[in-house]
Design a binder for these strands. Structure first.
Lengths: 365, 365
DNA sequence: TTGAAAGCGCTAACAT
DNA sequence: ATGTTAGCGCTTTCAA
């Protein structure tokens, strides 16, 4: 029989000590205690020891609500992401920003989004500079173009503006925090999902579809992970090829069709989120073939094809929650001076026909 | 080409209107505005219209920080769950409580856990009464025993103490909020996972393993969902049987072994979280058989068997996050008078060998 | 170096 | 019915 453990928490009843109490106990003023707590100097050695001794005895937990009311500054956070009108993935991210505006508005945090494209007057660098002009208290950035991003970080560091990255990590920039996923592991997961229940020969194509070859640096991680899974775990014959395509080019559709018509293809893994629907649309015209199709993210069109069964699995990168979390971290940092994690890797969520609605219903929580 | 949409948010820059401002605009005192905002009566028709007119024009967002600082009551929340020492599932829940203590302690919310067992002096009813004696400001409860729970709710209603349910819903009790999962859909998901890649005849056993037959009411939902998936989607031959077992009984192991030895069994779906490891341990001794094994929750032993490949899928019920969310809802209700959702259904998370670590790393967020 | 005190925005008790 | 005010706990300015 196991004993009941109702007793062990009795000690946890909070003591609720205020600065005023500490001051009284140490025989100094509130101001002095505050100066000690924040190492702000101008404290005599004698006062310091008196206060320190009290602090050693009790466990002081500052009241974060009072602290932030006092600060009651109107914080402004700029969020810099690729133009949402050009890609539903970034439209999702933008939806996350809107949610954050609603949530953090209550706490006096204003969030201003800025959108960039690859080139010219709306480049990451120029848009970021525009964002900087309004002198925000913090920035949350999805830095998908490496060299331009470096310029931005050096600006931010010079001005002492804290920043949080999401989606794409650039560790050497030493951000306050990074929120994203382990892409290599994400590829391994795709590999596992592709192989479930397969025992005969498999022929698989990995498709990187998009305009910017630059992104491939990150997409390649997914490919590597996928291949590693097969190497280490699959003992029946298989063949994996990978292709870089631009859905804009004329020969795109015919290239895909010729793949399908070879009919030996058993699976396709599409590493970019909106492209998996492009493939699904083509597969739709070949109902007799059975290709296991795996892609990324709960974009509207992807959901349609997932529900109809054309797409078998989506791995959710949670674009909405990534920004939301990034903004929340920044807000907690500014508002409450809370400690925030240096990196936060999101779980690799598997979305199927049967759990997709549960994900839609639960939204961000 | 798509136009850039950087402009559309300029209006969103917060206006930050205080009660004082509204009072000035309406030509009344702050007290009157507050009375109107909270429908506290004692307001003349004339004053009411003046204030209402102003409120219609502007969008007043109360400063939640100031509000809660003012209240600055020391709230106490009791959490009532089954004894964690008896089942690793409830140990997980308990871990969620500990996290919540850390998180909400900063805001002056004290959380006191209470543990019950099925019978006698530690029953749900008696333990809840004990919790009530300390006159908490709110309660968060996992009411797994129906009739006893009803007693508790009537007590709570009589005393006007708000309560949030999680894990098991009892809608007729009209809780402030319920946090849990759609168990029927959870069963359907298990069905899908079981069937992936299978095209030959399947023979599947659904196992409900535990001491309390009472729980079965809910486990049956999972079974129904599972069967419904097969009925609607599977067109090759299959056979599904279901069994109620108690792992304590002597013949337990031999019953399972005889199932395995029949060798026609292709899959097992275990509806209770800790039992899937019991099955995995038995399967371990029959390495030549290949049974697809699906269970629930990221309990330590389950993770071991998932990683080794004995368990193929776990559906995560997220016990930790369920309590955490329940407590957070209660705290937000007490502290900030925030609106909280009547029911919150968690996503049905699919955990596999390849994404399990990403879930472990991400914890609660 | 230290203490005293104002005030963040909201609420409720109290006075009118 | 309405206005005034104290004060939640913390931070920071100002005066000593």
């Amino acid at each position: 029989m196991c004993e009941n453990s109702n007793d062990q928490y009795i000690l946890m009843i909070s003591t609720n000590i205020r600065i005023k109490d500490i001051a009284k106990m140490a025989g100094v003023s509130e101001g002095t205690v505050d100066r000690v707590l924040h190492n702000r100097g101008n404290v005599s050695a004698k006062a310091l020891t008196k206060v320190s001794n009290v602090l050693k005895k009790i466990h002081y937990k500052p009241n974060l609500i009072a602290r932030s009311l006092r600060r009651s500054k109107h914080f402004r956070v700029s969020v810099v992401i690729p133009e949402p009108n050009l890609d539903p993935y970034w439209a999702e991210v933008n939806a996350g920003i809107i949610q954050a505006i609603g949530e953090w508005g209550h706490y006096g945090v204003t969030i201003e989004p800025f959108f960039y494209t690859h080139d010219g007057k709306l480049s990451l660098e120029l848009i970021s500079n525009q964002a900087l002009k309004s002198k925000p208290d913090g920035m949350v950035i999805a830095p998908i173009f490496y060299p331009q991003a470096l310029q931005v970080f050096s600006q931010l560091q010079k001005k002492g503006i804290p920043y949080v990255l999401f989606n794409t990590n650039i560790p050497e920039s030493k951000p306050l925090s990074f929120i994203g996923q382990d892409l290599f592991q994400s590829g391994k997961l795709a590999g596992q999902l592709m192989s479930i229940g397969h025992e005969a020969t498999e022929e698989i194509v990995i498709l990187h579809i998009g305009e910017d070859v630059k992104d491939s640096v990150y997409l390649i991680e997914k490919e590597k992970g996928f291949k590693e899974f097969y190497e280490k775990n699959i003992h029946h014959p298989y063949k994996i090829t990978s292709l870089n395509l631009d859905s804009g080019e004329k020969s795109f559709r015919s290239k895909i069709e010729s793949l399908i018509l070879r009919e030996s293809i058993t699976g396709m893994f599409v590493t970019t989120s909106k492209a998996v629907s492009t493939i699904a649309r083509i597969l739709e015209d070949y109902p007799s073939t059975s290709v296991r199709l795996i892609g990324y993210d709960m974009l509207e069109e992807n959901l349609k094809h997932l529900k109809s069964g054309l797409i078998n699995f989506l791995i959710n990168q949670n674009p909405k929650r990534q920004v939301f979390q990034g903004i929340s971290h920044m807000a907690n940092h500014l508002l409450f001076k809370k400690e925030i994690p240096r990196t936060e890797l999101f779980p690799l969520e598997v979305i199927t026909q049967q759990n997709v609605d549960s994900y839609i219903a639960s939204g961000i929580h």
